[in-house]
């Protein structure tokens, strides 16, 4: 496989992970989406987990609403406090829009990107994944590594276990685990990560 194809695939992967973290809406959360999702799990060997998610969705009378409620509880407002806001600053500065958000924004700028009109806060997980996608598209692996190690992993490693432990839906446990998997630097080739 050529270098540029690989980078395109990785870029797509980041985009797809970002999509998984959007507020659930039948517009995109359809059969096509889940086919890709199960496919991805299958190619990683996570067949059992895929089945578990499929079961949870099939058993529900309105799985979209289930996921909307769970999304609200996890990422927007819980009862009455949110489990894991998807913003870096929350973990690094203990607030929304802390200096970590600014550092993240500055990194985007350093790489020639700015926030779009419709964008949320710069340190929103979705945008960080989109940014990683853009970097890999440009084959800027050094930038990708630097972003992951200095601006992404330091907070994501706090965020991920909170969701994984607190979530009541296997879908979100899988999504954060996937993101964890694809952003974590291997300590050594061939060594089996075993977390979550």
């Amino acid at each position: 496989m050529s270098e540029s194809n690989t980078s395109q695939d990785i870029a797509s992967l980041y985009r797809f992970l970002a999509q998984c973290m959007q507020y659930p809406d039948p517009e995109w959360m359809n059969d096509d989406f889940f086919n890709v999702f199960y496919n991805l799990l299958g190619s990683l060997g996570a067949v059992t987990e895929g089945k578990e998610i499929r079961k949870a969705l099939e058993q529900s009378s309105d799985f979209i609403e289930d996921l909307q409620i769970e999304y609200t509880r996890l990422f927007i407002n819980g009862v009455p406090h949110v489990v894991a806001p998807p913003f870096a600053s929350v973990y690094m500065d203990k607030s929304i829009q802390g200096s970590f958000a600014l550092r993240t924004l500055n990194f985007y700028r350093k790489k020639g990107f700015a926030m779009g009109e419709e964008a949320d806060l710069p340190d929103n997980l979705i945008h960080e994944l989109e940014f990683l996608s853009l970097l890999t598209e440009e084959e800027d692996y050094v930038g990708e590594e630097e972003f992951l190690s200095t601006l992404f992993r330091p907070w994501y490693k706090c965020f991920c276990p909170r969701v994984a432990e607190e979530t009541r839906h296997p879908y979100y446990r899988m999504v954060v685990t996937l993101i964890d998997f694809f952003t974590k630097e291997e300590e050594e080739d061939g060594f089996q990560l075993n977390e979550a």
């Binding site: 300590e187 060594f191 075993n194």
Partner: peptide, 10 residues
């Protein structure tokens, strides 16, 4: 060293 340590544990 770090990697070996982690590997050992895992």
């Amino acid at each position: 060293a770090g990697a070996m340590l982690v590997k050992g544990l895992s």
